[in-house]
Amino acid sequence: MPDEKLFIGSHAPYWHNGSSISAKSYDTMLAALPAVVLGISQYGAPALGVLALSVSCAMIWELIMNVAMKRPASIGDGNAAVIGLLFAMLMPATAPWWAVVVGTFVAVVIGKQIFGGIGCNPLNPALVAIAILMLSWESMMDFNDALVNYDFGFNMIYPLAAIKSFGASAVSDYNTVGLLMGQQPGGIGTTFGLGLIIGGLYLILRGHIRWEISLSFLASVFVTALLFNLSDPDKYANPVFHLLTGYTLIGAFFLATEDSSSPVNFFPMLLYGAFAGILTVLIRNIGAFVDGVVFAILMMNVANPLLDKIRPKAMGKGIKHA
């Protein structure tokens, strides 16, 4: 990453360094792979089915919209496939086929193409789809209901639901290592904490996502959860628990960092991540929903244009007494 303060330009001709949207998309998919593979190995064929259907449906919707809007076909850039993949990672493995079809329609058509395709979406498409599905089919998106027929030998109560209903003592038998290794029920690709962290670090090192957003998001989840935990340890879980359960990690590395719906400057990125983290914990601990990541990030997506107003002064402007 070039030093932002110093911009040295050389004369033309320039050399394309090979980075492209499709490279970014495939890198993102590669980064998501560890978590996805663990999901498939845990939930078996149904998870693979949801993933495959979701990715292919997302690409088909994209193609249909390209034809309908008389635009050049854009499925080659892999962005639709990434949306489909992220959407499937958030879903429970038992999601029925029609939910995946509707969800990818919402994600690709309403979340992305309606606004003008890649780079124009004000909200994260996968999150739009998940939010709408959560509002419509609550029991299908409830991991306790959805995964009731699975038993992997560890506590199969969705941790965030458990803490919401029974307080901190109900979740004392989840240990940190277990949570990191994916020993918790959840979405197909959201449970394997270590895999998500590795994938996220890879994306950061490759320069596809910004560490400012991920770090500030995780830090503010930690701090806010810590404050709650200090105020009432019986009722609110410890901060590490909040970091490793639900959608927190996938949100920090894959969802909040989506290009066009997150800020571009240093300070706004920190604010964006911090507010999303605070909102997440507030919704989890006080709000009506079990997991707050989806709505917290969507709300910050909406606030994104405002955050982008915080930017360095343009050269020569704003000097009143020159």
Binding site: V102, I132, L133, L135, S136, W137, M140
Partner: peptide
């Protein structure tokens, strides 16, 4: 049929 209840909500 599971109603797509998002449609009858405000958004």
């Amino acid at each position: 049929f599971k109603p797509f209840s998002f449609m009858i909500q405000a958004p």
